[in-house]
């Protein structure tokens, strides 16, 4: 069964339509890389799939259930977890308070949430009383990713989790992505660095100007990347 399915989806901001009928599926236990040039609508697509932006047309299915019109909090309860671009944390709350917020979904007690997070990212345990905004970029992203670890999502939407991070931390985060996929989670991955994403992906989709222009295995899609990003000459 497809954990996430978009059919002819249209959406945008106010009167400006960004997605002009996008269809794609993400089966359970699969990583799909969503690639494409700036402004193609990748982040918008993730926002629509998590209920932050409403769809104007088409269908959004989560776990086979039609969920058009559900808001972000409701979709979170239904098992969708989006880690937003930039900082997916509350900068003015401490690490421990951030983790407390993650208990809004799922049935883990605060102590269990802390245990799981600090088990995976011991560095966060050392900084539990620190304001999240004062953590290093890598630690902030670990804290953001810890939500996917503790809410037991069915669908995980990752928006540029490697942005601005050192390669060693990126590797650590992607190791976690692989583990989560093995646990059966459906993962849709947006990445600035196409190669990084393709290395862990089972399949890939190129989005260009609000439309899917290519779908295939990572190898198939890779050939067309340069043209999509830098124009014909490269």
């Amino acid at each position: 069964m497809n954990a996430l399915e978009l059919i002819g989806l249209r959406a945008g901001y106010g009167s400006i339509e960004v997605l002009h009928g996008v269809s794609l599926v993400v089966p359970a236990a699969t990583v799909v890389a969503l690639l494409g040039p700036n402004g193609a609508g990748k982040s918008t697509l993730l926002k629509v799939a998590s209920g932050t932006i409403a769809t104007t047309d088409g269908c959004l299915h989560v776990g086979g259930v039609h969920v058009n019109g559900a808001d972000a909090a409701a979709l979170a309860q239904a098992g969708v977890c989006r880690i937003p671009e930039g900082r997916g944390i509350f900068p003015n709350l401490t690490v421990a308070e951030n983790l407390r917020m993650w208990t809004g979904v799922g049935d883990l007690r605060p102590a269990e949430v802390a245990e799981r997070t600090f088990g995976r990212f011991p560095r966060l345990g050392e900084r539990r009383a620190q304001l999240a905004g004062t953590l290093s970029g890598g630690e902030q992203q670990m804290l953001a990713m810890s939500r996917s670890l503790v809410v037991d999502p069915a669908v995980l939407l990752l928006d540029e989790i490697s942005m601005g991070l050192a390669p060693i931390i990126v590797a650590e985060l992607y190791e976690l992505v692989g583990t989560l996929a093995q646990q059966g989670i459906a993962i849709l991955l947006v990445e600035q660095f196409a190669q990084t994403a393709l290395a862990v992906a089972d399949s890939a989709v190129i989005l260009s100007q609000g439309r899917v222009t290519r779908t295939g295995t990572p190898a198939e899609v890779e050939e067309h990347l340069a043209a999509a990003y830098l124009g014909g000459a490269a």
Binding site: Q192, F193, Q195, T196, A226, L230
Partner: peptide, 16 residues
């Protein structure tokens, strides 16, 4: 032309 062929630029855009 130079920019388009520059490997650093390609890396920035594509992650190679």
């Amino acid at each position: 032309d130079q920019v388009q062929r520059d490997p650093v630029v390609q890396a920035a855009y594509l992650g190679t």
